[in-house]
Amino acid sequence: MISLEGVTYSYMPGINALDHIDLNIGAGELVAIVGENGAGKTTLVKHINGLLKPSEGRVTVCGLDSKAVTVASLARKVGLVFQNPDHQLFAETIEKELSFALVNFGLPPDEIKRRTEWAISEFELSQYAGRSPFMLSGGERKRLALASVLCYGPEVLILDEPTTGQDNRQKVRMASLLHKLNQQGKTVLVVTHDMEFVSDYIPRVVVMSHGRVIADGQSGDVLVRRDILERASLVPPQLAEISWELGLDPPSIRLDDVVARLAKLIGGAKA
């Protein structure tokens, strides 16, 4: 689905923001990309929808070489939602905002209407219908930005820091939305610093540091590795820390797992 082979990119000569990245993501996967500030996460995802083209190496998405196609044709397949919704909202009304991409991609009017209505109800925005996007709260603007990309139905969805500034209810909603999309067969990538979010909801994690991929695997395996987390300035998930403190082997990031083994430990101590 998405494949990067030896991808290198530099904004300024001499400094590689991406340094020989190899990465494969299959159709229907749900993957988190984590790493320190400036690790190259945003740079990486911009390669996947063609905003940036590799200086070296190759990016292939849905069988298309990113160098051979325009951003618009790749964007049709890869929806990228940026961190700051204020960088994209511009229309007079929520409906116009939602239909912007649909019009750009040349969908027929009745289809545009159908999808706009779907997005409004799916994202619980109907109470704001007909109003300006700028009247919404920060969290709502973020939801609208996401909706405006989702409504054109890209096969791959990439979210850059979707949980910053969201309350817990919204995080849980976000997680269930991601799972729902994933079940519909969409490939979903989430760039985030929120390790609890990753450990609770996302099965695969790619850790980046200084433009390289330093770990890639099941969240349960990667997020308990102290060396990796330290190199990428990541806060360990609380359950991983508890596992370390208790000397659980192997450490775990699943609550039920940790609780069960803790119960055993206590039981063992009593006996």
Binding site: K46, N49, L51, T70, V71, A72, A75, R76, G79, L80, F82, N84, H87, Q88, F100, A101, N104, F105, S148, V149, Y152
Partner: peptide
């Protein structure tokens, strides 16, 4: 940033 965001939504 804004141009990147709008291009990602198909603006040419």
């Amino acid at each position: 940033y804004i141009m990147d965001a709008q291009k990602s939504r198909g603006l040419e």
